[in-house]
Amino acid sequence: MPEIRRATSGSHRGSCARRTCRLTQPQEDCHMKSPSLSGIVLALFFLSSGVEAQVYDDFDSPTLDPVWSWVREYTPHWQLETGYLTIMSDRGALNTERFNNVQNILLQDVPDEDVIRLETKVLFSPEFWLHNAGLIYYIDDDNYIRVSRGLYPDDDGIDYNGVWMEWEREGITLFHFVNDVHSDTTWLRLTCANDTLFHATYSLDGTAWKEIARKILPFSSGTARAGLQAANGEGLLAMGESIPARFDYFGMEPTGVQQGEMLPALLAIESVYPNPLQMSNTAVVMFRLERADNVRWYLTDMLGRRLGVTQARGRLQPGLHNITFSLRDVPAGVYFLHIAAGNTMAVQSILLTR
């Protein structure tokens, strides 16, 4: 498998530079915020782990550290204010090659370590479908992972107001949602093991963490970077005005978590075959449940319009299950399969060809 290129850990070691603190021991010249419980807990967390190559940016400086770089920077819609980086959630999407237009993605190199954990605290209250803000692990516009606080449209007018993990690999997109977060302040984490296994979690207090999803994704070759993003919309579904996402800090550090310690997702789409799907074929979808729950599924087009009715599978036991479907009377294009179990949802993009 082609290797993912990352920065050597040496490039991330040392003392503080501006407000980006690479912490190997307490540094008196770091520009830390005035003491707060969350800030103290975070600082103690970073300092107590005893590992090098840590990055912590609390956005207290009037300028960004030069280790950061932008993808599609739009200067009027981001700013540094006292202790926060604000990025406006402008209209834009990354899923499918048709769009790839999210502005103001802020990135820096990922250090060369076996297991890396990204973390941020974001103040963000989504108002319309597909407002989202959070972490991003980025190789290019068609190979990335996002862990976001956001609002997602479900069928029958029900909204998933919560957190999600979204990933795209070589143009194929999949989402996993957790509903009922309803908090203006959310902590997000993404743990990356050997550039292959990714585990997303969230917290409402910075202490107790809950799982969003985990996924094995052997990305193609490229340079891995990580950072922050905010956007409004996926595809043609952007609604409402841009709203601010205020990031309190960004942390990136090696961690002792091993792959075996990363818990499986409660609901995961394991495979869709074939994909791309020809109109004359039937798709077989394999999905896994980690606990018994009521399951339903449905299909939508790029505008979010539902194809047919929601299919109820009833209460399924833990394990591997399958569904089948065909798309014969609709135009060629990109469609989305939604599978919901309890308050979680997984979404997989399907490319339909003639």
Rank of each mutant, 00 (worst) to 15 (best):
I4M: 03
R6F: 02
S9A: 10
G10I: 04
S11K: 14
S11D: 05
H12G: 00
R13C: 12
R13A: 11
C16T: 13
L23R: 11
T24Q: 14
T24G: 06
Q27K: 09
D29R: 12
H31G: 06
K33L: 09
P35S: 12
L37D: 08
G39A: 10
I40Q: 13
L42R: 11
S48Q: 09
G50H: 12
Y56S: 01
D58M: 15
D65W: 14
V67G: 00
V71I: 13
Y74G: 02
Y74D: 13
T75A: 14
W78Q: 02
Q79K: 14
E81N: 13
G83C: 09
Y84W: 13
M88F: 15
R91M: 10
G92E: 04
G92K: 09
L94R: 12
N104A: 11
I105C: 08
I105D: 10
L107V: 05
P111A: 11
P111C: 13
R117D: 04
L118P: 02
T120L: 04
T120E: 07
K121M: 10
P126E: 06
L135E: 07
L135M: 08
N143I: 14
S148L: 06
R149V: 03
L151T: 06
P153K: 03
I158E: 10
D159T: 15
M165S: 05
E166H: 01
W167Y: 12
I172K: 14
F177P: 01
N179F: 05
D180Q: 15
H182C: 05
T186C: 12
R189I: 02
C192F: 05
A193E: 07
N194H: 07
F198E: 01
A200Y: 00
S203G: 01
L204R: 07
G206F: 00
T207K: 06
A213S: 08
A213H: 14
L217Q: 05
F219C: 12
F219N: 01
S221C: 08
G222T: 09
T223C: 05
A224E: 03
G233E: 05
G233S: 05
L236P: 00
P244S: 09
A245H: 09
G256K: 11
P264Y: 01
I269Q: 02
V272P: 00
V272K: 03
N275D: 06
L277T: 03
S280K: 12
V284Y: 15
M286I: 08
A292T: 04
V295L: 06
V295W: 11
V295G: 03
Y298V: 00
L303H: 02
R305K: 12
L307D: 09
Q317V: 11
T324W: 01
F325D: 04
L327Y: 06
L327Q: 10
R328W: 15
D329L: 08
Y335I: 08
F336Q: 07
L337H: 04
G342F: 02
G342S: 07
N343S: 11
S349R: 02
